[in-house]
């Protein structure tokens, strides 16, 4: 099993309403000097493939074929040693 972190973000220049609203709320709440630059999505992806090259190819295929809308988004694919802690968090067991 090979693991990847997928980070999907709005394309540079594409309007990012979430970042705008979060920036406004941070300012309203007194966190001066802070602003949200980009709000994206994070996915921990596991590929059932031992060969890292082939696993990466599969990961790219799923990103470009499904997870990312190239009209609006770009993505970063990073290999991950093992699932991050958040991925094994189970509801009711903080």
């Amino acid at each position: 099993m090979t693991h990847f972190e997928v980070i999907v973000q709005p394309r540079p220049g594409v309007r990012d309403p979430q970042a705008d609203a979060i920036s406004a709320a941070m300012h309203d709440s007194g966190y001066d000097g802070c602003s949200a630059q980009s709000v994206g999505r994070f996915l921990l992806l596991s590929v059932d493939e031992a060969d890292s090259e082939q696993a990466a190819a599969k990961a790219r295929a799923v990103c470009e074929g499904m997870l990312v809308n190239p009209l609006l988004e770009t993505y970063v694919l990073r290999s991950a040693a093992k699932p991050a802690a958040s991925a094994v968090y189970r509801e009711g067991q903080p």
């Binding site: 309403p17 979430q18 609203a21 979060i22 406004a24 709320a25 709000v39």
Partner: peptide
């Protein structure tokens, strides 16, 4: 509130 962005209710 705040578009429900990030997490509904969090920003508000």
């Amino acid at each position: 509130s705040y578009g429900d962005y990030w997490r509904a209710g969090m920003l508000a």
